[in-house]
Structures are given as structure tokens and as C-alpha cells.
Design a protein around this nucleic acid. Structure first.
Length: 828
RNA sequence: GCCGAUGUGGCGAAAUUGGUAGACGCAUCAGACUCAAAAUCUGACGCAGCUCACCCUGCGUGCCGGUUCGAGUCCGGCCAUCGGCACCA
């Protein structure tokens, strides 16, 4: 028997406990069943769940439940991206232990996830900060080191002063730190990199394979990798025998127009290229450039500065000499760090040449509109002039001609260049995976022996130190012996970027408790790749690019045999309040705990899926929650007030024998199954699924309200309708539907029932409203049988009194009939 | 500057992909129930006009134009908002 009133708090606790007891959500590696792997981006354990989490996990949970009812073996796991700076900052500020702080947060957030009613097999939980996990992160690092994919080099890197650590290029947003929003500086440091650039071409090409990804994400990745084709050209230094300066250019066709060359202030040969007279000015300029933060550099956009080095280069194409300058508009990390300047045909070079009075030589002209002087750089297509034997060529063709000349003359060749840089993964922080490397005075940089993994994070550290990593304060950690020769050696004290932990976690879920290997290859074959990934757009480049890269590396190491980790991707929109992003500083956050306590998780689940499609932003409103709660009460009453008319073993009589009301209701049920199934299949349009729930509830209430008593037939059709409805509701409202099903006498879990099927013939109305238009404007509506033939429809339309009157004295030119929809009469 | 997305009532949004624009909900208003309130139920609800009945007539999907019997949907040109990249040679 069902209670009169809906008490979500009691019901939800009861079922969460029961599901645990009967292990309803345990996932077996049942290879006879077709698998479906649905994944949400794992949370950082910051302390409490926010509404963005609730939205993310509700979406993936409903997908998981829907797929399970459709017969799939569904994996929907959860874990914790638990290394990272906030834990360490908490340690510094409150004297807490980062590990304890993190594990406490995990325990609390896990209880919140359970309160949300998620269908998760917690036996597969993954926590990236625990040694049994990061052992394998270290293992992978060593494999990459051995393959030459992990290397250390000195470079100009991004340094965040606040966080006191370096950052990857992908973690610098508008010249600021992605995490703390602090200014980022360039520093010269020796750091660990992963050779993601080795995979640049494949990462770009395989974007085509990602059919189930949103275009926006694919385009962002394309732009980030940014391939360009051009040439390397090498110029001999006039003053120094044997020294050359190579440049990368996409415009070899303009090479006859070079009037100067710019090297980055950090260019490796810059000191050699500077004459004694210019040394002081150049030093000064370089010092300033180094001091400048990213932000300052960006703000000086377009106001270009530079100084001459005093030396010259020779253009092998025409023998002309031109001066070498240094300017910070040349980037050390892109191409060769040097740019050939053709002011006539490049806006930046033009501005620079104007400012410093450098010559401007026109070598490409629009034949329709030749000019002798330029007011701005001419960057369009044209024909070469002043280019010796290349004059007269179309510039697009000249590109190849000049590359050929360079190859023949031995001063250049074609070159493909990417914007993507290698991934900087070392961090000067404590709370991360230790990089498993030892520095031996004899053997050099040596990886830790695999059998000695994990390299444990030390506990005897002093968090109060400034300007260096706390790891360095651990004597027990720092000093070790060389794995090769056994002599005294020192450990690497840097830890890894947390994105190293999160770029493979989804493989670990597949075999989370394996102590012998990161995972079993056979199980990966069954479960991978992820069928549906759900997460925020903010990872469009960062995590999603790194995971793609890592998957390809694992493939090349022979560890897995797929190319891409995520088949389909759903990027959910943000949760807003009053039109702006929820944030603590704005004070417009909504605490999930309060919502669960006041309304229950089912209300929260229903609301967060309603109103907006998953990929768009969602505006949280208190009235909206209230409305959803009312709807759940309305549903509850439907079942509790009429339970005496509901029987689990109903038989639906043949449709043609039914009364009109029952006939209509049966059709409504089939139409509703169809529409909801379609909306879920079509990119998980849960907002329209929920409007369909409401419409169907209205239909059933209309049915009841037109009744004084239930016949046997009525009870059968009614039972069919409300029990089918219960199954359709189950993925979104797991607790309520379970309680109702039990109350009605159900013996299994409602979540073990099959998703209802619909009959195509019954999934349409018996009658339709025929729209009659004249010249495309609606003039009449007539109820007709939905199967009425085309000719008949035309006749009905023309015989309508209203239409007859309107077309009187007019000539009917044409009649267009759309069966099942409308008749349009064209008149003059 | 380049690339992308979006633009529909007071608000969140639907629209079988070229066929009744505004489903469903929020808010609002009116009514029923109630001593009263809450809850619940019923109804109205794009804008303007006309009107003795709730019938009708215009106008309406950012703006301008086009294709079509018919355009929120397709094509061309603009505008606005949001997001990504941004001295990448």
C-alpha cells in the first residue's frame, strides 16, 4: 500500500540503503552482454558538491539507467581527481594535512553523491592521490621516458607567482593562471615535458573520427593545434663566417621583399649576432622583455618595440643585405624564433618598419590596381614584381617555385609547423604524483626501477617554506641511491601536473582493484572506449586533448588498441543563478544539501534536467524547484489515490474493442513512449522528455476527471497507462518510482524492468485536425480521421462552408494536400 | 582582428527538420473550496484592433531582401550577445 503523502526524505534514504544491500548497481564484466560505458568527468574533492556536479552526474545517471533498462551492461563509475593545489593551500593556511583534508572531503562528497541516488558501482571507485593509483601514473611516466616521450629541458616557461609553480601553455588563460587568476611570468627553468607535438598531426587528423563530439569542441582543438604549412629559409650572416639564421615562414612567395629580420629577445644566438656597439642597448632590451609579465606583453599589443643588433644577413635569392633586429613580437617558442620581415605584405612588419624607418619593398601587386606606395600592408593575392626571374608569377604558385629554389640552393625546404607546444608537466608543488626519476652524478638522469614503484610522497615536509617546493624539505625523500650503479643520488622533487592523473583514470575504472597492472588488457577490449562522456566545456582543450594524446601513447606502447578514448561527448552548460555563474564571491550559490533536505533528490534531478537542453546554460530558480516538487506530489497522488484501480497483471484488450476514451489513452501511451525514447536518443533532450512527462500526467488526470467509476476495461487500460508511465519515469526519479512500484506489489526493482516498447501503428492519434489554408494563411480547421486519403482531404477542404464562402468569385489555381496535416488552396 | 555558437511572449523554452508559431513550465490574473490563509482544483494569458457574445481582422520568431503554394526552419546581406584564439611569422 502506498502512503497518502509523499515523503521524499524517508523514501530516498530507505532505497539508497536497500540498493547497497542488494548490490543493485554492482557491475559485472559480463562479456555476453553488449556494454555501454557512460562517464562523467571526475570531480575535484573541494569540500562540497556544487550544482554543476549535480547537473553533470544527473545527466550521466539518467543515461546509464535508461541504457540499463534497454538491456545494456552499463558501466557508470565515479572517482576523485584528488591531487592539486587547494589541498596544499589548506595545509599551509590551517596546518591541516593535505591527505587528511582530501580524504575527509571525499568522504563527505561521496555521501552527497549517494544522496543524489546515483547508479554507481562504488567498488570501482578511483582516487588519484592514493599510492595504489599513482603507482601506475608513475609507471606510465617511466614508459614514456624510456620511449623518449618524456624529457627535461631548459626553456622559457610560464610561472605563476601565486601558486609558486610553472604552468602548461593550456593553463594560461588571457595571460593569467587558470586556477588562481594571478599574473603569469616567463621564467627560464629546466622542466619536464611530454612530447605531445609528436602526435600533433594525428591529434589533428583524428578529430575527423570524433563524429559524436560537438563541433565547437572539435574546432577549439583544431585551432589549438593549428597546423600551418610553409618553409624554412636559412640566411648567412654577413659579418660572421659559418653562422646562419633560419626562419619559418608561410609566405616564401614574399622572400624577395625581405628588408630586415627579427629574432626573439630569447633567441639562442643573439649574443653572437650583436656587435659591440649595440651590446648595451640589446642587453637592456632583453632585460626588460624578460621582466615583463604575459599580461604586460599582451597589453603592449601593436605598439611594437625593438633594437638593432648591428649585424646583417644576405638574401640568397637576390644577394640583398638586410639588418637583424630583436623585438618581442617574435616568439622564441614558435618556428625558429626568428622572423623574416616583409613589411610590404605583413601588417606587423609594416607597423614595425614605419616606426623604425626601415625600407618597405613591394613584391606582390594586384594587377588590377598597381600602386607604388602602400598605406597599409598588402596581404591579398597578386602577382610577383621586383622578384627577378620570379616576377610575373602568381603568388600562390610562387610559393612552391621559391621553395624549390631554396632546396636546390641548399638554403631551405618546405616545413609544416604547429602552434601546439610540448606539454610541461612538472610542478614545484607537494600535493601531486612524484616524478619517479633519480639524478645520479655518474649515470645522469635515471628512472626509478619499476619494481620500486610507487615512489611515495614524503610525509616529513615543512609546508611553511617559501619560494620552493615543500618536497625539498624532506631529507628522507631527497637522498637515495642510483638504481643503476648504487651510488649516492638525489631524487627529482617536482611532482606531476594533475592532468597527468586525469588523462587515464577512465581506463582504471575498468579494472580498479588490479594490483599487478594498471588494468587488464582483455577487460579494456570489452569496455573501452567510453561510449558517452559528459562534462563541462571548460575542458574542451585541456583534459580532452591530453586524454586523446595519452590514449595514442598507450596504444603505441602496446598497452591498449584503440585510437580515441571518447566516442561521444556531451558538454553540459553551466548552472546559473539570476543570469550569472554561481560563485561563492557573488553569494549566489545554491547548496545541494539544502535542496535534498527540503525537497529530496528526485525533485533536484527532475528540475536540473528540465527547462534547458543539457548543452545549454541552465538558470536555477527557487520557483522552478518548487514547481517540480509540486509535480512530484501530483504524480504521487495519481498512484496513491487510485492504487485500488491499478493491477500489475493487467491485459490490454484489442484496440478496436475499446471505448473512445480507452482507445485514445492507449494511443497516448504509445505516442509518449515513442516521443520520450526519441528525445533521449536524440542527444539526450531531457528538457522535452520532462515536458512530455507533464503532458502525459495531464492526459491521465483528464481521463480520471471524466470518470465516475472504473469498468474492468478501464482498470486494465489505466493500469497499462500508469505502469508504463512509471517505467518511463524511473531513470529520472529512481527513488519515487521504486517506492511506488513496491507499494503496488512489485517484487523486483523497478530499475530491473525493461524499457517499454511502442507499436508504430498505435503511436498516432485516431483523429487529426486538418488545417485548411488559402494562399498559405490558415482559414479553417476540420477534424478528420487520421487515415483519410489525399483526394478525400481535398474534397473535405473545398466543401467546408467557410472555405466555400472565401473562394467564391475567385479562381482556384492549385490545391496542395499534405496528408495528415493540411490543405493549401491557391487562389487568384 | 580570426573562428564558432546563439537571437522566438513578462521569463525558461517547444516546433515531427519547409506545413496550425509559442507545446510544457514559471510568473501574473480570475474563479472554486475555506471563517481565513496555505495547499489543491478550474479557467484566461504574443501584440494591436473590432465587436452584442469566446466571433472576426491585422501584425508577429534580431534587422533588410530573396526562393516557395507555404519560411522560426532554406539562400544573400547586415546587427547584437556570448564563448574560444589572439604579435603563431
Amino acid at each position: 500500500m502506498l502512503n497518502d503523502r509523499y515523503y521524499p526524505q524517508e523514501i530516498e534514504k530507505k532505497w539508497q540503503k536497500k540498493w547497497d544491500e542488494i548490490q543493485l548497481n554492482k557491475v559485472y564484466n559480463d562479456k555476453d552482454k553488449e556494454k555501454y560505458y557512460v562517464l562523467s568527468m571526475l570531480p575535484y574533492p573541494s569540500g562540497k558538491l556544487h550544482m554543476g556536479h549535480v547537473r553533470n552526474y544527473t545527466i550521466s545517471d539518467v543515461i546509464a539507467r535508461y541504457k540499463r533498462m534497454n538491456g545494456y551492461n552499463v558501466l557508470h563509475p565515479m572517482g576523485w581527481d584528488s591531487f592539486g593545489l587547494p589541498a596544499e593551500n589548506a595545509a599551509i593556511q590551517h596546518g591541516a594535512n593535505p591527505k587528511k583534508w582530501t580524504l575527509d572531503n571525499i568522504a563527505y562528497m561521496k555521501s552527497q553523491l549517494k544522496a543524489l541516488g546515483l547508479m554507481i558501482d562504488w567498488d570501482r571507485e578511483v582516487t588519484t592521490c592514493l599510492p595504489e593509483y599513482y603507482k601506475w601514473t608513475q609507471y606510465f611516466f617511466i614508459q614514456m621516458f624510456k620511449k623518449g616521450l618524456a624529457y627535461k629541458k631548459e626553456a622559457a616557461v610560464n610561472w605563476c607567482n601565486n601558486c609558486a609553480t610553472v604552468l602548461a601553455n593550456e593553463q594560461v588563460i588571457d595571460g593569467k593562471c587558470w586556477r588562481c587568476d594571478g599574473d603569469v611570468e616567463k621564467k627560464y627553468l629546466s622542466q619536464w615535458f611530454l612530447k605531445i607535438t609528436d602526435y600533433a598531426q594525428e591529434l589533428l587528423d583524428d578529430i575527423e573520427k570524433l563524429k559524436g563530439w560537438p563541433d565547437s569542441v572539435k574546432i577549439m582543438q583544431k585551432n589549438w593545434i593549428d597546423r600551418s604549412t610553409g618553409a624554412i629559409l636559412r640566411f648567412k650572416v654577413k659579418e660572421i663566417e659559418g653562422l646562419e639564421v633560419p626562419v619559418y615562414t608561410t609566405r616564401p612567395d614574399t622572400a624577395y621583399g625581405i628588408t630586415y629580420l627579427v629574432v626573439a629577445p630569447e633567441y639562442k644566438d643573439i649574443e653572437k649576432l650583436t656587435t659591440p656597439e649595440n651590446k648595451e642597448a640589446v642587453e637592456e632590451y632583453r632585460k626588460n622583455a624578460r621582466k615583463m609579465s604575459e599580461i604586460e606583453r599582451l597589453s603592449t599589443e601593436r605598439i611594437k618595440t625593438g633594437v638593432s643588433l648591428g649585424t646583417h644577413l644576405i638574401n640568397p635569392l637576390n644577394g640583398e643585405e638586410f639588418p637583424i633586429w630583436t623585438a618581442d613580437y617574435a616568439l622564441a617558442e614558435y618556428g625558429t624564433g626568428a622572423v623574416m620581415a616583409v613589411p610590404a605584405h605583413d601588417e606587423r612588419d609594416f607597423a614595425f618598419a614605419k616606426k623604425y624607418n626601415l625600407p618597405i619593398k613591394i613584391v606582390i601587386q594586384n594587377p588590377q590596381n598597381p600602386v607604388n606606395e602602400l598605406k597599409e600592408a598588402y596581404t591579398d593575392k597578386g602577382v610577383l614584381i621586383n622578384s627577378l626571374d620570379c616576377s610575373g608569377l602568381e603568388n600562390e604558385k610562387a610559393k612552391q617555385v621559391i621553395i624549390d629554389k631554396a632546396v636546390k640552393g641548399g638554403f631551405g625546404e618546405a616545413k609544416v609547423q604547429f602552434r601546439l607546444r610540448d606539454w610541461l608537466i612538472s610542478r614545484q608543488r607537494y600535493w601531486g604524483t612524484p616524478i619517479p626519476v633519480v639524478y645520479c652524478p655518474k649515470c645522469g638522469t635515471v628512472p626509478v626501477d619499476e619494481k620500486d614503484l610507487p615512489v611515495l610522497l614524503p610525509e616529513d615536509v615543512d609546508f611553511s617554506v617559501k619560494g620552493m617546493s615543500p618536497v625539498k624539505t624532506s631529507e628522507s625523500f631527497k637522498y637515495t641511491t642510483c638504481p643503476i650503479c648504487g651510488s649516492k643520488a638525489e631524487r627529482e622533487t617536482d611532482t606531476m601536473d594533475t592532468f597527468m592523473c586525469s588523462n587515464w583514470y577512465f581506463y582504471r575504472y575498468i579494472d580498479a582493484r588490479n594490483n599487478e597492472a594498471p588494468f587488464d588488457k582483455e577487460l579494456i577490449k570489452y569496455w573501452a572506449p567510453v561510449d558517452q562522456y559528459v562534462g563541462g566545456i571548460e575542458h574542451a582543450i585541456l583534459h580532452l586533448l591530453y586524454s586523446r594524446f595519452f590514449t595514442k601513447v598507450l596504444r603505441d606502447l602496446g598497452i591498449i588498441d584503440i585510437d580515441e578514448p571518447f566516442k561521444n561527448l556531451l558538454t553540459q552548460g553551466m548552472v546559473l543563478k539570476d543570469g550569472s555563474k554561481m560563485s561563492k564571491s557573488k553569494g549566489n550559490t545554491v547548496d545541494p544539501d539544502e535542496i535534498f533536505a527540503n525537497y529530496g533528490a528526485d525533485t533536484a534531478r527532475l528540475f536540473i534536467l528540465s527547462d534547458s537542453p543539457p548543452n545549454r546554460d541552465f538558470d536555477w530558480s527557487d520557483a522552478g524547484v518548487e514547481g517540480c516538487y509540486k509535480f512530484l506530489n501530483r504524480l504521487w497522488k495519481l498512484y496513491s489515490n487510485y492504487q485500488s484501480h491499478i493491477s500489475l497483471d493487467y491485459v490490454v484488450p484489442e484496440i478496436s474493442t475499446l471505448s473512445k476514451a480507452n482507445n485514445d489513452l492507449v494511443r497516448e501511451v504509445h505516442m509518449t513512449i515513442k516521443k520520450i525514447s526519441q528525445d533521449i536518443s536524440n542527444e539526450f533532450q531531457f528538457n522535452t522528455v520532462i515536458s512530455k512527462y507533464r503532458e502525459f500526467a495531464n492526459v491521465i488526470y483528464d481521463y480520471i476527471n471524466n470518470k465516475t467509476e472504473f469498468s474492468v476495461e478501464d482498470e486494465q487500460v489505466f493500469s497499462f497507462a500508469v505502469l508504463t508511465f512509471l517505467k518511463l519515469l524511473a531513470p529520472v526519479l529512481p527513488h519515487m518510482t521504486e517506492e511506488i512500484y513496491e507499494g503496488l506489489g512489485g517484487k523486483t526493482s523497478v530499475h530491473q524492468l525493461d524499457w517499454p516498447e511502442y507499436d508504430e501503428n498505435l503511436a498516432k492519434p485516431g483523429k487529426i485536425t486538418l488545417v485548411v489554408q488559402i494562399n498559405g494563411k490558415v482559414k479553417d480547421r476540420i477534424d478528420v480521421d487520421s487515415e483519410t486519403a489525399k483526394e478525400e482531404l481535398e474534397k473535405i477542404a473545398l466543401n467546408s462552408d467557410k472555405i466555400k464562402e472565401l473562394i467564391l468569385n475567385k479562381m482556384v489555381v492549385k490545391v496542395i494536400v499534405v496528408p495528415g496535416k493540411l490543405v493549401n488552396i491557391v487562389v487568384k
